[in-house]
């Protein structure tokens, strides 16, 4: 069977998660969940809404009528029973709230506490939506799994943290990278690996029938195996996992070393423990997390097989 959705949709779903994850990264940093003095407090806010908005523009290009009769797009708000309609509302609201929040952060103005939380809720909804859009399609067993939104949200958080880290490395002067951030990312990558194993395990075992197993096989051992094992598993998950673990050990050791030197004051020691710069290896692994996230979206879209292949015996 021919595919109906192609690269534009893949990139749109990927960017939706990436932007949502970037927002949540800065939100977490602002709340102090990524360690004190994090350098990720602003950058994620700046890039979140533009990333999602760019993805949405791509989607418009993919619509058969996007450039032909664009006024029809208003009707996308009509069917409250359609997940795609939910998505239009969620994305539109997220882009608006994201831009307002970014503007206030840029102006160093105190944004209302509620605004930040609403944005975080919408970001989570955006990430979940990209998976939910697929998971409600019963005629595509590979998509029709409750794991799909979970997988996409975890990947969104991970890729969002990565892209924010990379951009912050080049753009942000204030704050520093620290062990908390490293630990959060380590657990996200580990969680994604677990979700992926469960998802493909269940699919392969036929939890969604023979067609779901066939889709899974095309990814794990079929035509998409190179993208799956190479780009997604090795580059997107295992390589970053190893780098983050090594970085974690390194950061802990240097923290101990500092404690062993009593001449330093407490603030000095903690500042030294949180080494100011990300190592380049960590930056490379962040980049490969993002590539892995894109590969994941591509695999999920392209490996979709319909429940009926349109033939009879």
């Amino acid at each position: 069977m021919e595919m109906h959705w192609h690269w534009l949709i893949v990139i749109y779903l990927f960017l939706g998660g990436l932007g949502a994850g970037a927002y949540l990264t800065s939100f977490a940093a602002e709340k102090g969940w990524l360690g004190s003095n994090s350098r990720l407090k602003k950058v994620g806010y700046y890039i979140a809404a533009p990333i999602v908005a760019f993805g949405t523009v791509l989607l418009v290009f993919d619509l058969g009528q996007g450039l032909y009769k664009p006024w029809l797009l208003v009707r996308l708000l009509l069917n409250f029973g359609s997940v795609m309609t939910w998505g239009v509302y969620i994305l539109a609201a997220f882009i608006v709230v994201g831009l307002v929040k970014a503007f206030l952060v840029f102006k160093n103005k105190q944004a209302p506490e509620a605004l930040g939380w609403v944005g975080a809720g919408l970001a989570l909804a955006t990430g979940a939506y990209t998976g939910l859009l697929l998971s409600v399609i019963e005629a595509v067993p590979f998509w029709n799994s409750f794991m799909m939104p979970i997988l996409f949200v975890v990947s969104a958080l991970s890729t969002g943290l990565s892209v924010t880290t990379v951009v912050a490395h080049f753009m942000e002067k204030q704050g520093s990278a620290n062990i908390k951030e490293n630990q959060v990312h380590l657990s996200l990558v580990a969680a994604e690996l677990i979700v992926v194993v469960i998802f493909f395990g269940l699919m392969s075992l036929g939890a969604k029938g023979p067609v779901g197993a066939q889709s899974a096989a095309s990814v794990v051992s079929g035509p998409y195996a190179i993208v799956f094992w190479g780009y997604f598993i090795a580059l997107g998950l295992l390589f970053p996992l190893v780098v983050f673990v090594l970085e974690n050990i390194h950061l802990k050791q240097s923290a101990q070393k500092v404690v062993a030197e009593p001449s330093l004051t407490e603030t000095e020691s903690s500042a030294k423990a949180q080494s100011g710069h990300q190592s380049y290896l960590v930056l490379v692994s962040d980049f490969s997390v993002v590539v892995g996230g894109l590969a994941l979206r591509a695999l999920i879209i392209f490996a979709a097989l319909p429940i009926w292949d349109g033939t009879i015996l």
Partner: peptide, 25 residues
């Protein structure tokens, strides 16, 4: 009023909705 998103093509188990690349709907 179809915008040509092709969501229905995935949703229908019988491949009944048909897309025309010519008209984009």
């Amino acid at each position: 009023v179809c915008v040509g998103c092709k969501y229905c093509m995935y949703a229908c188990p019988y491949h009944s909705p048909q897309f025309s690349p010519d008209t984009g709907r």
